[in-house]
Every structure is written in structure tokens, then in C-alpha cells.
Design a binder for these strands. Structure first.
Length: 125
RNA sequence: CAAGUAAAUCGCCUUAUCGCUUUCCGUUUUUUCGGAAGGAGGAAAGUCUGAACACCGUAGUGCAACAUAGUGGUUAAUGGCCACCAGCCGUGAGGUUAGGAAUAGUGCAACAGAAAGUAUGUACAGGUAAUGCUGUAGUGAAACCAGGUAAACUCUAUGUGGUGCAAUGCCAUGUAUACCAACGUUUGAAGGCUGCACGCUUGAUUGUUGGAGGGUAGGCAGCUAAAGUGUAUUGGUAACAAUGCACUAAGAUAAAUGAUAAGGGCUUUUUCUUUUUAAGAAAGAGUACAGAAUUCGGCUUAUAGAUUUACUUACUUA
């Protein structure tokens, strides 16, 4: 078991992020939205994940930080379950598209749905 | 006691579990792993100002634009701060100011009033050849060679170059390639047609290698020891200054400093018990504003609640 979520697991490269938003596919489970793309990384990590909250929905930095931290927690604690079903390297970006401040349990359940959808899409294609 | 005034301070805590990040040490070829130490604020916010720092610009002068506006002081600097004077507000402690100039000019003036300047009406009185020609009354803060207004233009005095750490400097994978060198060259390098071969075709303005330039992804510096913090003494009404002693305090970059659970503080509401004030118990609710991004000095705005110090109190009530 491994609950870590450090620099290597984060999607940080500008190149990857630009490519992701340009070509990536997406699934959503309100208030979350997952943009994903199969790709390769220089260091051998299976997948890298970025988390983003729009400035449009949360004007104050303190609120954005709070939502991002909750999302990071939700992802970190269930990372292992998700990674079991992923075989090829992927880049992920999880966006928060709601406008209300969420609770941790809401995000956890929604994120589970999000990845279920993602797996179904991958199996079909 | 109550109601106020002015300053200043604090602004949740503990434990457990799972994490993030920086530095150092050990380990390891690196990655990894282990250990230790550090890790948001009074406003980190607004980006309104003054500087440091960097780059660009820069003979001099004038105009324009913008800013400031009592006097003195303080400071690296300021439009900040302090003291005093003056006006206004308050019983008072105190608060507040948009405090230069109204015979340089232009404009504006609610209500009232005939009229607020190219005006002269009404009533009465006086006067004239005649006429608002003169006086009084009436409106108003102000009614003629007058005043008010510069939070209207304006004038005066003083001051001001621009852009910002996404500044700027350095390293540099890949891609394309100016340039240089070597090698290959009509005995044909290399490319195109093709699955391959033959063949056909283009053909040195090119191919390969190396250098070199350029500087995208990315990285490093800038980047945290400073007009620093605490404290004591001295000078000064004060802002502030000088000196001594002690201390070292985030450095991320799709952006760390957290999440969850339990318990405890604090505030408050309701109910119950004892009761002179008050105290105790139970249940519920609340626990703010807000997140560093080159660094400092200020200003402005947001802020549940708590604490301390100094001072004031007219009328009214006792």
C-alpha cells in the first residue's frame, strides 16, 4: 500500500499539459471532470495527475486551495485502486467544474464514478 | 458601575493516523529508503503610493500631462508619520480638514425675490422740461464701482524619464539551419517513384561528420542576513535617532505549508437547580477575515471573539 502523492506523480510539464488539453478525451461526473490521454514519460511512472480549480468558479485563493487540497486527498487515498486498472502510461488532469464548496466524502464518491467511467471508455476503444 | 474616547496586544489548543515541501546527515552507481531540523499573515489581500534592485532611454530649455499645497520636524524615500497654529464638530477625553491665490480672466449660484447683471418692477416720498433721476420699504447670506464659490476651469509655487523579477544574467536536449572546416563528387554522394531488386528520374544551391551561431522545452542564478527581529540605556514633547547585548526566521513554481477523527478551550442561546449579585449542570449553535510568489517603508479595505493601558462624562437618574 502506498498513499504518497509527490512531485513525480504530479503532472507538471507544460508540454504534456498543453498536449492534454489539445488532444485529450474527457469524462465527467459533476462536479468533477477528468481529461486523459495516453502518452509516455521520461521517468518510468505509470501515470501523472494534475489537479486544477478554475479562478472563475472560486475567486478567492483560500477557497481554491481548499478545494484542491480536498481533491488531492481524495485522489491520494484511492490512487492504488485506480492504478490497478491502468496498463499503459497516461496523463490525467482532474478539474473541478462546480461552484459550491464541496465536502471530502462528496469528492471521494464522485471521483470513484469518474474513474469507473474512464475505465469503461478505455475498454470500449 | 454604566456610557464613551484614544492607543496597544492576541486572534484557538492537544493527541492520533495518512500525507506535502526545503535543507542537512547516512545509505545507494542513480532512483529509492531511513533519520534530524524548518515550513503563511496582521492584514500574506487591494496593487493605491515611496524606495532598493535590474534593463532601456537621456546635451540644454520650453510646452503639455500628472502630483502636492498652513508652519516646523522626521526618514533611504514618500502624497506617510510627529508636533504646533487656524477653521469646523463634540459637554468632554478627543475627532476632523478638500487649510496657497477671488482687483489676472472665464464660469456657477437652490429657495425667496421684479432683478443675483448688458437688471431696474411695485408702493410711498423727493426731484426734473422729461426719464429708475434719487431715497425708503419689501426678498435674501449677499442688491453694485460689493461679496460667495478654486470637492469649477484657472493662476502661482514646488516636484516628476520609462518599464518591471514574466526585470535581468547563465547553461542548454530536440527541431530547423545562416556560416566555417574535413570527407565524398559526372568513374555519381544523396533524394524521389517501389514491399525489395532492376529500371526511370532529380542532381552539388547537396550529403555525412565536426565546429559555430541561434535560444524553444527544461534547468540554475536573481531568491531571501535585511533601511532585519527582540531587548535595555541615552537624547528628543513626539515621529524618530544613537549605542550596547542577544538572535537568524518559508522559499513553492499547474505553485508545498495539508486532510480526517477524537478531546479540550472560548463566546452565546434555551432549560433546570441554588439564589441578593451570581454560580453550577445539561442540550444546541458559533469559533472570523483570509493563503506568501523579488524585497522592504507606508496607506486603504476585510475581520467571530478576547485582553491590557491611559483618559472623559454635560443634561438626566441615584
Amino acid at each position: 500500500m502506498n498513499f504518497t502523492f509527490n512531485k513525480k506523480d504530479k503532472l507538471k510539464s507544460k508540454k504534456h499539459i498543453d498536449a492534454l488539453f489539445a488532444k485529450g478525451k474527457s469524462v465527467s461526473a459533476y462536479p468533477l471532470r477528468l481529461v486523459y490521454m495516453a502518452t509516455t514519460f521520461d521517468d518510468d511512472v505509470l501515470f501523472k495527475t494534475g489537479i486544477s480549480v478554475s479562478k472563475r468558479h472560486f475567486k478567492r485563493a483560500i477557497d481554491r486551495n481548499r478545494v484542491k487540497r480536498l481533491m488531492r486527498e481524495a485522489f491520494r487515498l484511492h490512487k492504488v485502486e485506480y492504478s490497478n486498472n491502468i496498463s499503459t502510461p497516461h496523463a490525467f488532469m482532474i478539474l473541478y467544474i462546480g461552484t459550491e464548496k464541496p465536502s471530502l466524502t462528496l469528492i471521494e464518491t464522485k471521483m470513484k464514478r469518474l474513474f469507473e467511467k474512464f475505465e469503461k471508455n478505455e475498454a470500449n476503444s
